[in-house]
């Protein structure tokens, strides 16, 4: 009792800080620090995988189909799980992804969705995560711009 009385001010400030920090640190349902580092695979596109290369990944592969669409690729030796995108954050799904020992590959009929979910899960600290895409270089311009040399600037 005497101890509490003596250090009342210190405890009044420190205890709330410690509680807040601990709740934040132990809460797994939040994003990890340093967004840039977590997003790194997306800068080089190393998180995109084409169907032919899936077998080159080490470990047991888990393919998550976001949505109802049936997978069109013939992938052997891959565990397939269908998860509607809006329930990807359900506890059991997150636990399944986190617990899975090996690469997790996201796939959706619309590639945009898999890309967005990839970023979301990566920011939660999930690693070894890929996006299945038919196009290994989705950021290449397939057209060429031809300047019009007859254009005269308005002066």
């Amino acid at each position: 009792m005497n101890f509490i009385k003596k250090y009342k001010v210190i405890l009044l400030i420190l205890i709330p800080v410690v509680i807040l920090v601990l709740t934040r640190a132990l809460d797994t349902n939040h994003f990890r620090t340093d967004a840039k580092k977590l997003a790194e695979p997306s800068f080089s596109g190393s998180n995109i995988i084409i169907p032919d290369k899936v077998n080159q990944l080490n470990g047991e592969k888990l393919l998550i189909i976001l949505g109802k669409d049936v997978i069109k690729h013939d992938l052997a030796g891959v565990v397939i799980k269908i998860i509607p995108p809006d329930s990807i954050l359900y506890k059991e799904n997150i636990r399944l992804i986190r617990k899975h020992d090996g690469p997790v590959i996201l796939c959706s009929a619309e590639n945009d969705l898999a890309i967005r979910i990839w970023m979301l899960l990566s920011q939660m600290g999930i690693e070894n995560l890929y996006i299945l895409s038919d196009d290994s270089e989705p950021e290449v311009l397939k057209y060429e711009f031809r300047p019009d040399t007859t254009v005269k600037p308005e002066l």
Binding site: S42, D112, I115, W118, M119, L120, D135, L141
Partner: peptide
Amino acid sequence: NGDYDANNAYV
């Protein structure tokens, strides 16, 4: 150029 960077940047 494609859909990839823009959707990542959106998130």
